[in-house]
C-alpha cells in the first residue's frame, strides 16, 4: 500500500518548500508579461486610466492581505472565531478588489478599443492577475468552509498557512503590476 507521506520526513516542511517553488515559478510567468509591457510600451503613460480607482483597489487589496494575515495568526493560537471572521473579511475585500478591476476594465474597453497596444498589455496583465485572484479567492473560500466544519487548529493548519501565503503573493504581484501599468 502506498503511503502518501514518508515516516521520518517533515511533511509541513516538504509542502512549504513546494509552495515556495510554485510561487517562484508563478513569478516567472508574471515577469514575462511585465517584461512585455516595458518592451512594447516603454515609458508610455496613458492618460485614460482611472488612477484614483487604481489607488482605491490597491488599498482594498492590501487590507485583504492584512485580514488574511490576522486570520492565520488567529488559527495558530487556536482562536477559530477570529480566524473565520478575518478569513471572511479577506474574501469580501478580495471580491471588492475584483469588482474594482471590473469597473476599470469597463472604462478601459472604451479608452483602448482593440486592437490597441496599451490595451494589450493592460488587459493581459490585469487579466492574468485577476485569474490568480479568483484562484486565491476560491482557496480562501475553501479554508473558510472547512474551518466552519471544524477543520484546522493551533497544531495543524498548513492548509491555512499555504493559502494565506499564496494570497500574500498575489497581492505582492499587484504591487508590481499597479505601478507598471498606472505610474511608470
Amino acid at each position: 500500500m502506498a503511503a502518501i507521506t514518508h515516516t521520518g520526513h517533515d511533511s509541513r516542511a516538504i509542502n512549504s518548500m513546494g509552495l515556495w517553488l510554485f510561487i517562484a515559478s508563478e513569478f516567472a510567468l508574471f515577469s514575462a508579461f511585465i517584461f512585455a509591457r516595458y518592451y512594447l510600451t516603454g515609458r508610455d503613460q496613458p492618460e485614460e486610466l482611472n488612477i484614483g480607482l487604481g489607488y482605491a483597489i490597491t488599498v482594498v487589496l492590501l487590507s485583504s492581505s492584512v485580514c488574511a494575515y490576522l486570520a492565520e495568526q488567529a488559527i495558530a493560537r487556536g482562536d477559530r472565531r477570529r480566524f473565520l471572521r478575518f478569513t471572511l473579511a479577506a474574501i469580501v475585500l478580495g471580491t471588492l478588489f475584483l469588482v474594482g478591476v471590473g469597473l476599470e476594465w469597463r472604462e478601459a474597453a472604451h479608452s483602448f478599443p482593440p486592437p490597441d497596444l496599451y490595451g494589450t498589455v493592460f488587459f493581459s496583465l490585469t487579466g492574468l492577475h485577476a485569474s490568480h485572484m479568483v484562484t486565491g479567492l476560491l482557496a480562501l473560500l475553501f479554508i473558510w468552509v472547512q474551518g466552519r466544519r471544524g477543520r484546522f487548529d493551533a497544531e495543524a493548519h498548513w492548509g491555512v498557512t499555504g493559502v494565506v501565503r499564496y494570497w500574500h503573493f498575489v497581492d505582492l504581484v499587484w504591487l508590481i503590476v499597479f505601478p507598471t501599468l498606472y505610474l511608470v
Binding site: 517553488l21 517562484a24 516567472a28 482593440p114 486592437p115 497596444l117 494589450t120 493581459s124
Partner: peptide, 24 residues
Amino acid sequence: FFFTQYVAAAMMMTLLDRLFGMVF
C-alpha cells in the same frame, strides 16, 4: 520549474493575439 513559464507565456501571448484581438 522556472523557465518553462516563459514558453507558456509566449504561447499564451500568441493565442491572445490570434483569438482575442491583442497585438503583442
